[in-house]
């Protein structure tokens, strides 16, 4: 397959996932879009030889996380009303909206671990490698993130 066609195929396959990952970290649609574009541009220009599609996906996740870290340090982050964006989303299941809000209400360090574990299906070991954190720290964050989610969601139900 020509290089450009392969890039288009991969970009179409992964761009939404990259956007979701970036959004889960940055909580800003505009910043997440910028990161997605930057990461795909990196994919376009890389001469890296990927062993498999799984390898591509891991590489993209790692590059996205690095780009998100850069944004975090930047003095040019956007301030956005999260609710404005959340209100535009259409959820197939009504309870998915509550879960989305609950995940996004977590602190960023819990949010990203929850996202990588549940959405990306990463193991604790893989999260530890991609975030460069000790396994124990990842495990603790996952546990606390789950507890906070459980608490938030049970409060919503009791309301």
């Amino acid at each position: 397959m020509p290089e450009k066609d392969l890039f288009i195929q991969r970009a179409q396959r992964y761009m939404d996932d990259l956007f979701r990952l970036a959004f889960s970290w940055l909580k800003s649609r505009a910043d997440a879009d910028d990161v997605t574009q930057t990461v795909l541009l990196r994919l376009y220009e890389t001469d890296k030889i990927f062993e498999s599609e799984e390898h591509v996906r891991h590489w993209l996740v790692r590059v996205t996380i690095n780009e998100c870290k850069k944004y975090w340090r930047s003095p040019w982050r956007r301030t956005e009303d999260f609710t404005d964006y959340a209100n535009t989303l259409v959820f197939e299941q009504p309870e998915a909206s509550g879960l989305f809000d609950a995940v996004m209400a977590l602190g960023p360090k819990y949010r990203i671990v929850i996202f990588l574990y549940y959405y990306e299906g990463y193991s604790i070991e893989e999260i530890s490698q991609v975030l460069k954190l000790p396994r124990g720290t990842v495990g603790t964050r996952l546990k606390r993130g789950r507890e906070q989610l459980k608490q938030t969601l049970s409060e919503e139900v009791s309301l």
Partner: peptide, 26 residues
């Protein structure tokens, strides 16, 4: 839980013209 989180994030999509922006004037 995994399926629920995936469903919760599924309405999020990259900006419509992301790919076009990258490929434009390639």
């Amino acid at each position: 839980m995994k399926k629920a989180i995936q469903q919760a994030f599924s309405p999020l999509h990259a900006e419509e013209h992301t790919l076009e922006n990258i490929l434009n004037r390639t």
